[in-house]
Nucleic acid binder design. Sequence first.
RNA 1: GCCGGUGUAGCUCAGACUGGUAGAGCGAAUCCUUCGUAAGGAUUAGGUCGAGGGUUCAAAUCCCUCCAUCGGCUCCA
Length: 656
Amino acid sequence: MSDATTTGEEVVVTLPDDSELRVERGTTVEGVAYEIGSGLGRATIAGVLDGDLVDKVTPIESDSRIEIVTEDGGTNEYRRVLRHSAAHVFAQALGRLYPDARLAIGPPTDEGFYYDIANVDLDGDDLAEIEAEAYEIIDADLAIERFERPREEAISKYEREDNPYKLDVLHTEAADAESVSFYEQAEFEDLCQGPHVSSTGEIGGFALLQTSAAYWRGDEANDSLTRVYGTAFESEGELEEYLERRRKAEERDHRRIGREMDLFSIPDHAPGCPHYHPDGMTVRRELEGYVREKNDELGYKEVWTPALNKAELWKPTGHYDTFTAEGEMFNWDQDDTEYGLKPMNCANHASIYASDRRSYRELPIRFSEFGTVFRNEQSGELSGLLRVRGMTQDDGHAFVRPDQLQGEIVDALGVIDDIYGSMDLAVNYVLETKGDNAVGGDDIWEEATDALRDALGAGDFEYEVNAGEAAFYGPKIGINAVDAIGREWTIGTVQVDFNIPERLDLTYVNEDNIEQRPVMIHRALLGSFERFMGVAIEHFNGKFPLWLAPEQIRVLPVSDGNVEYAEAVAAELENSDLRVDVERRSWTVGKKIRQGHEDRVPYMLIVGDDEEESETVSVRDRAEREEGGKGVDLEDFRAHVEAERAEKRTEPDFLA
RNA sequence: GCCGGUGUAGCUCAGACUGGUAGAGCGAAUCCUUCGUAAGGAUUAGGUCGAGGGUUCAAAUCCCUCCAUCGGCUCCA
């Protein structure tokens, strides 16, 4: 790509616009910026060298791609630098208030920064004090300076300060370095590779958000440290916006909305096993119906298999070893035999496949099941509907000939795209490849991975690759839904599996009457109903599309005298299988409306003497639009909502 | 599983630090009001203070154990 080549003491750097520049070997990032222009040079705070964020004094030793990070533009790189500096400001403030605290590491993250610390116990009030001290430091606009110190000197410094974590860093990452870099601002200094902004005053908005625990180097055999999370922005305003977004996300918490809307509960007697209440079950039944429709389209035949099986069912497939080793399977001895609750449905479906002799003419053979599985997730991992121990997957397994493989995957991806699109969920596809716990040979994995990659390509789906993250039995396309406020959730999945057919000796007979190995495709469209409901609740903020809403229409009589007419209206709409309630409480109209909005009902029909006389209704929707006055013909309204329901529109639009 | 927080009426929360007969709002029930597009009024009922143990004359409150839950960590479909 380059016609310029390295000669002797020169290296070639490639700029973001693909232009190239020759500079002397050892020139710093900042030096390159000055080569480009003195304005850029002065504005430089850091660089990105071949994708890695580095300090501006980093020398360039070989040909590389370079990007100059400056403070304008509010780029992600700049924010990372700013937040790294904010982590230092936190550490400085902490040191002033808690001189005994020991610093471990404090990197920037996507949303802010954290600093792991030891020897200190902090609660919410303490964070507020530290935050106030941090603002002192920011207001003082202290210059942030980089300097080098011989590694030996750094070691003795941290031995004096009794800081095992910094010493650990010096003895591992920096073991071969002659000297190491420090950053200092006033009385504070920290072992750090940088980069940093030039002074503390560049931080406009600073907030400490929460504390938690984390192990040193993420290993539970190590010390447990206190981790303080915070964030920082160029300005107070941007910080406020961020905090507001966080508050909004909290308000959408599906556990809270689930309680408010009486959708589900997870009582103490069944940790990780949600109970669906009538309205939650209504939502689930609608989702089930939708999936059944799609399964019919795809040619999946519904089956049902039991939760309780002998443990030996899962031994040949490798599930038993994998799940039992992790303590994830519920199994126990009963009358001298080991039984278990199924952690996946595939072994049962494979047994149905194997129950008959299969011809190549029959393939693909496809089974679907709303299969309830149980996995003993660690107690600390359980989280509402999003991480559970008992869940029902909209599972499906297709047994195909190798030549049918790609088409089958493409079809599944197409349906998934369809379903998610219908709910305004964007989808990110993630290709997950062979990991350490994988069973089966490399060649088989490669073949399966290629099949998935080809299908993604054939369907023109963009995807990212997550190396080493696949399930143990085969590579996978993870379906990550992106919700209304930009969060990503792993829900559906498509996996190719050559291993189970091999291990269970599944066969079909080809045209030459020779036994062949089918390929197995595992796929879930929504993933599990539990997680999908949790995501849908947060995505829609409880304001389900009409087709999903437990209560679709509420009829509000203006006074008690109109109840009878309200009931007649409701009965009329119920003839169209609409879910309609009548508000019979003797409340004022205003209060009934308020309650209707709080309950997130898509449509309210308000009926008083005027409507009763003209045999109409007055319509108000969830978005506070209203159509009163002359009134609305009930048949017009019925026709509209029937269409709205059938087309699965996401917002009530009769009044749009 | 690990670290830290939390658990009081159906819901949201006060009371706990400093031990002395358990409170509010919403919701519910009853009554009054019959109301026109986001909260009409009154009365009443409702709590083994997560469970068990301990300290004490006395425990929601202090101590211990367990359970559940929340935030992370780790793990992961």
